[in-house]
Design a protein around this nucleic acid. Structure first.
Lengths: 203, 203, 203, 203
DNA sequence: TATGAATGAGCATTCATTCAT
DNA sequence: GATGAATGAATGCTCATTCAT
């Protein structure tokens, strides 16, 4: 008791909010929304349950915060990438694939959560995220359709091509090891190549 | 109200087990393992909670039963398909892609559950399924490696090619609508074509 | 199925009742009334739950049957022993101690159950057994009081003497090992001697 | 009704733990471990079920806490009593009998629970308590053996003498009425006298 | 900023019991 | 004599949440 100045946890006073976000990210990723209890989160953050409620109004709100942050990030990334492109479909396809790979690597954990757990979001969050996801799909689809229309892509089923490309990119966050020996830029190159083959890029 | 004579639950005595399996499949798919309560399952099956425990010894066992059935089915499907092939890598790749698409369509619901919820399995089930999944991966990889070795496939990164093909096929169960207008055979053709492009099949 | 003539359990058809009684006796003794489930009993007896209900109308009735049998046995034993005595208090004390030791050894298991679990009997059984127990106490007390009145016993607190003697005898069923090297007759001799000391038998 | 202002549960905030311990002691004594539900305990304590789990991690832990407290108390009592004795076996026997009577009166309720319900303790608690009980037995036995060796006690069967003395003392908690007219000191005198007779103290 | 104490609703599971065969 | 299938009530326990401090 006396000189207990050295706190048992490494969380600096006033930094509880950050600790909670980090802990929540980890545990939601490991066990999913329903498999995670807020007690677990508070404990891993080294705080009391009540402290969690000081920073976040509910489990759902804490969860939504994580996901929305991450999804908004994705859209910003795509938007920026496409803005600095011309209108060449091949260039645009490469850009959006790079943006997607980048996101899946950079936000590996949250993007996995987001992919698996949208159904556990309450309205209106669920709808908002579904809409965002839909927008991403539309971006991909428009680029592919345009490429086919212009004859620079040659593939029979544009929708399946789009699905295959998205699925391939999205899966990255499930196996990517940040400590492994493939760097993100190299990885993006590879997935651009795969995407180009799927759409049948003519040279 | 009106025609209340027709009971809402028409489960013939002794058929409770079937009703429970069907209900469990649906609800686990909708809400995930932790999001599903066995009360919900029993209710949808039109039985009491206790009846569920007459047929299944625990929530986990009920869950495992569903998944293992389905995963075993997949392996049998692959095995059969590859057995009736020669050793031509192109033929073998087509066969395993067809088997995978077939499985993802036929067992759409369980395969989605299996993909998302292995982490919720207790040991030793988790290990067994992880092993099976690993075997599937190996089957794909061997075919691709062999194709490259023989020069019939031309692609730079065999592992990424395999991941892209698997991810594309697996995603099917997330969007496929059995009442839609693409039949499974046609779908398999399309994904074989995508796979062939990804591996760079030479003619 | 076909020729399944050899039953999996050694219980001869029609002997289910006995098997249940034996199983119940063992398990009630091991785990107490509330700690015992009728499923456990049926399982140990090698019968189905429903079979238990064929032979016994309820858990309570099965339980009561065991105890009452045993307690009635005790009273018969005491009664017989005292009938063949004269009216000498020393002789009578020896007789009732012998009867008690005999019972505690012969009915070791049930008598332990009875001692510990009367409170779990429903009325009117609880009252009946309490009355019987009370009668036994009275028998002991009358003998001791008479011995003191006649001057053949010399002790200051007749009630405590009686309690000590009964407690000593009753405890036998908690430690007696039927396969040990003290036979019941020898044991009875020892406890008669202890009782005589407690009451202060004058030679 | 009338004076409804006085709440039925007057548990001051922060004192829930005490209320629970008291309630648990009473109900476990009345109905035994398996006969007691934690809902009953919480209700009698005037708290919610959840509050019980705030203070105690499980039913078992709550139960163990009660019993271990009490058994440890017994050993401390015996130890203190024997320490302030010389090595005269008669003096030591009197001391340990007094300590035992004292404990059985002072901790009437818990000691009854402890006696009846050790089998319901999980490991390692069961073993610890069995060991403690064994130690008590050894204390008694050593005193008696020493008394016989020195010729100050005269009895044929030392083990049975010990059992009789312990059983007599232990039974006290089953009938003793704290509001009755025998005070503990007087009671201890009586049981010392009984013990001396059982071991055959020479003068 | 944070905590300790408390709650009510819900959880998976087990209970004694019943009924049709 | 015996079983398989089913039930409603209760069990021990965990959940997200609240509130006074």
């Amino acid at each position: 008791m006396a000189t207990e100045s050295a706190a048992p946890t490494a969380i600096p006073r006033g930094r509880g909010g950050d600790a909670l976000t980090v802990a929540a990210r980890e545990i939601f990723a490991e066990r999913g929304y329903h498999g995670t209890s807020i007690r677990d989160i508070a404990k891993r953050a080294g705080l009391s349950l009540s402290a969690l409620y000081y920073w976040h109004s509910s489990k759902q709100e804490l969860f939504v915060g994580l996901i929305e942050d991450s999804v908004n990030d994705y859209f910003q990334t795509c938007d920026t990438a496409l803005r600095s492109c011309g209108d060449d479909p091949a260039e645009r396809l490469a850009a959006i694939v790079r943006a997607t790979v980048d996101y899946r690597v950079r936000r590996r954990v949250e993007s996995t959560i987001a992919a698996r757990e949208i159904r556990n979001l309450e309205q209106p969050h669920a709808q908002r995220l579904a809409d965002l996801r839909e927008s991403a799909t539309r971006l991909f689809q428009e680029i592919i359709d345009e490429g086919i229309a212009r004859g620079v892509f040659g593939c029979a089923h544009a929708t399946d091509a789009r699905r295959a490309i998205q699925a391939s990119c999205n899966a990255i966050s499930q196996w990517y090891d940040p400590d492994g020996d493939v760097n993100p830029a190299e990885l993006a190159d590879r997935y651009v190549a795969i995407a180009e083959r799927i759409v049948g890029l003519t040279r």
